[in-house]
Design a protein around this nucleic acid. Structure first.
Lengths: 214, 214
DNA sequence: GTCTATAGCTGGATAGAC
DNA sequence: GTCTATCCAGCTATAGAC
């Protein structure tokens, strides 16, 4: 037989698509039963395959989670990189991005828990799976720079603020908008603060190393 | 035999202290192995008792979690209610409280996850266990009122901000202070924003219901 | 590669003696 | 109330036929 090597292109394609079927079934279950509320038995039943088939593509259940993490991280980076319209005011862009972030998180609890909450005891994403997330944070830094914000601590303040909105929304009003509707005001508060800070200590005082004990 | 009734005082005391031993062992395990990273077998080994003894005091593992939740919620309410010094500036009080909140959360990940992250799929605290948490939120509202902040949405903004700091601290710099050291600046930003908002729309414009799309 | 069948274990919870 | 002993359901993962 020709092409019996495991690395032949169409072999790879088959492998890949089988993988995709498994991961898709895993996502469906995670959304329905909770991130960790499903077993491999559930998975194979849902995907219409058998247990050993899963192990032909993944070494363990955690390897499936890792694939899910990678997928989610890529989605996240892509979504955050989408520019709305060019030629837009930097501030509107910041608002739009914050809204997009909140929507991204809130539309999929399982994904949010996997990606941002480290909700799986004993699971650590592999470096490859994690990589895209770094890309997204760089995007955030650039977006703030567009708004004249370059201090590292202000980037941290920004992520805290916007993370907190999502976190509270999930914890205390899931499905509602009690916190997400505060995004506009949050951005206003944040930008106002940074602007005034910049006026007080003009230009690059190079992020004076305030004692940072471990 | 006198006092053979289960409701006699010293019987109750014994029951209680046995309960306490079990819950204490559960906390120790939760801190060492993760909130859900331990089994009843681990628990009985640690507490030096046997499985049926546990079931003499608790109906299920979730009942143990509920007791833990109640304990944590009480601790939380107490800690938040501690006034630093009287005669203090309302703003300093706000900063101190925010710091106390962050410290409370960050000193015990398991407690934080149980109390604020709903990290146990399928577990809901009973109303009795939950009650003290309400007390704490009322305290926060009063503290903001002392600072002239009475709008409901500003209370929400406050909790989001301070929650976000803790959340980011845990997720991206556990053990460090990269975010907690931003508490002062966060309070400044928040108070500045609320003050200016109050100037623009003076006195109680009764929280105009801004259109709330999902 | 995919199946059936099952190993091997660990989990929460219980029976019944004392 | 506390024990020893155990049940039984669930899990991940694998052996071995095809």
């Amino acid at each position: 037989m020709i092409n019996s090597s495991d690395s032949s292109p169409w072999r790879e394609a088959r492998r890949r698509s089988a993988r995709d079927v498994i991961v898709a079934a895993a996502w469906a279950l995670a959304r329905e039963e909770g991130l960790s509320g499903w077993s491999l038995r559930d998975l194979v039943r849902r995907a219409g395959i058998s247990t050993p088939t899963v192990y032909a593509y993944f070494d363990s259940k955690n390897a499936i989670y890792d694939a899910m993490f990678g997928e989610a991280a890529t989605e996240f980076a892509d979504r955050m990189a989408e520019s709305t319209d060019d030629a837009e005011d930097p501030r509107d862009l910041l608002v739009a991005t914050a809204r997009r972030y909140a929507r991204f998180c809130l539309t999929d609890l399982a994904r949010y828990q996997l990606l941002f909450q480290r909700a799986l005891p004993g699971f650590e994403p592999s470096p490859q799976s994690y990589a895209p997330a770094v890309r997204a944070l760089q995007g955030a830094a650039e977006l703030l720079a567009l708004n004249g914000i370059t201090e590292a601590r202000h980037l941290d303040l920004w992520t805290a603020l916007i993370t907190g909105v999502v976190s509270q929304q999930f914890a205390n009003d899931p499905g509602g908008d009690r916190w997400t509707r505060l995004v506009d005001e949050s951005v206003a508060m944040f930008l106002g603060h940074c602007r005034r800070a910049a006026e007080r200590e003009p230009e690059s005082s190079p992020d004076q190393a305030e004692g940072a004990p471990s």
